[in-house]
């Protein structure tokens, strides 16, 4: 009995330090910014309570809607491209093959490249006159390659492509691991019934891989919604505000214009969007960690 009671107590010794740390360094900032969001507050000046004013202000702020729609474009294109490309590559390389090991190793590199550095590299790769992309396009005979930083959609595409480059390998590695964990016996049985590769993929691989696809999509979704570094370094939000993603706009409001109250309200709107999205997969995520 004594041992049991001891066990009851010691278990807290293990988890409490981590919980406390995270509580102190996230809950306090979270509460403080919740408070700020109800105030007209500029950094270094007096604060006045304005209730829901900041939130109402956001809905009539065209830059808010602009950044939100850019982020939605970015998220949809980047997440679907990375997951689809990753899935394609994973299917292609899901077989014992000598080159695979080296290939897998090299695919780890993009994931750990600092996004901020990648943005600057993107700047040199997509440069209109001497960047790699346009030089290559001209070599291929394209007379008028896109002005990546002057055309609205080209710029949006450029930042998205850089993100796609960085995270395709992540999706590839995760989906490949998922494929290699699938039971081999099932495939062997399936091949007796049907010889169609598509049939096997559609009716066996895809359903079995669904949990992994789900995980990878969620993780990508959460990360891309926060995107800041790549547009920050690559386009500075330009041309105009064409690549001003949501986080970038919040950064400009809060940390360039020092409008802390409004920035906090905007950040909370993003948090609410994330909560809304995560509510859809909360139960499945909870089951994973059971």
């Amino acid at each position: 009995m004594k041992a049991m009671a001891h066990k009851e107590r010691i278990k807290f010794f293990f988890v409490i330090p981590g919980i406390l740390w995270v509580l102190i360094f996230t809950i306090f900032p979270l509460l403080y910014s919740l408070r700020l969001s109800f105030f007209q507050a500029r950094l270094g000046q007096d604060q006045t309570f304005i209730g829901m004013g900041n939130f109402q202000g956001a809905f009539s702020d065209y830059r808010f809607w602009n950044s939100l729609s850019i982020t939605v474009f970015f998220v949809v294109v980047s997440v679907s491209l990375t997951v689809l490309l990753g899935l394609g590559l994973a299917l292609l390389f899901n077989r014992p093959r000598r080159g695979l090991r080296f290939f897998r190793s090299s695919f780890v590199l993009p994931i750990f490249t600092a996004p901020i550095a990648l943005g600057y590299l993107g700047l040199t790769i997509f440069h209109e006159d001497v960047g790699a992309v346009n030089v290559a396009l001209r070599m291929l005979g394209v007379v008028n390659p896109p002005g990546w930083f002057h055309q609205v959609w080209a710029a949006r595409l450029a930042i998205t492509l850089v993100d796609v480059w960085q995270w395709t390998s992540f999706c590839f590695l995760v989906l490949l691991a998922g494929l290699q964990n699938l039971p081999e016996e099932l495939y062997e049985a399936a091949q007796l019934d049907t010889s169609s590769g598509w049939g096997i993929f559609r009716h066996i691989t895809l359903p079995l891989l669904a949990p992994v696809l789900f995980t990878v999509t969620i993780l990508r979704l959460v990360e891309t919604l926060k995107v800041l570094d790549i547009p920050f370094s690559m386009t500075s939000g330009g041309p105009g505000a064409a690549t001003q993603t949501y986080s970038f706009y919040v950064y400009l409001v809060g940390l360039r214009n020092f409008n802390a109250g409004y920035a906090s309200a905007l950040a909370y709107i993003l948090l609410l969007i994330m909560l809304f999205i995560s509510s859809f997969f909360f139960n499945r995520l909870r089951a994973i960690y059971d």
């Binding site: 988890v15 926060k226 089951a287 960690y289």
Partner: peptide
């Protein structure tokens, strides 16, 4: 699982929410 998920949720938090108070 809830404690685990709670730790994980830190990763979902947009850094823009905490940067000013921090």
């Amino acid at each position: 699982k809830d404690v685990t998920l709670w730790f994980l949720s830190q990763r979902f938090l947009p850094p823009m929410v905490t940067v000013i108070p921090f």
